[in-house]
């Protein structure tokens, strides 16, 4: 961010960039993949597959803006990591069972 007196120091900026950048993207990808397992299938049995793909940009945007705007970065890390881990665990369990 712009180097002004109002900008956060880089020691606080980089953790935020890591969270809103790669971690937010990976989390959105895991939510998309996990959605195939917890979303309703619908009458044609494809909603759980199609909706997460179509809504992926929106999922990413939600995670990204939350990661940017939560004033308590520690809490933001916890929320994002929990969302990622829950979906990763669902996917892993499904793959192991199948």
């Amino acid at each position: 961010m712009q180097a002004t007196s109002n900008s956060p120091p880089s020691s606080r900026l980089w953790p935020r960039i890591v969270l809103a950048g790669p971690l937010a993207f990976i989390t959105a990808g895991l939510i998309m993949g996990g959605g195939a397992l917890w979303l309703p299938e619908g009458a044609e049995h494809i909603d759980n597959l199609v909706l997460p793909i179509v809504l992926f940009p929106a999922i990413w945007a939600l995670v990204f803006f939350y990661a940017c705007l939560d004033r308590r970065i520690g809490r933001a890390y916890w929320v994002v990591l929990i969302a990622a881990l829950v979906n990763a665990a669902l996917i892993a369990r499904h793959l192991i069972r199948s």
């Binding site: 619908g42 009458a43 044609e44 049995h45 494809i46 909603d47 597959l49 199609v50 909706l51 793909i53 179509v54 809504l55």
Partner: peptide
């Protein structure tokens, strides 16, 4: 429909893209 054989929320949303 564009996806599947009967209309679905996912198919409708996808068709709008």
């Amino acid at each position: 429909p564009s996806l599947g054989k009967v209309p679905s929320a996912g198919g409708t949303l996808s068709a709008l893209m």
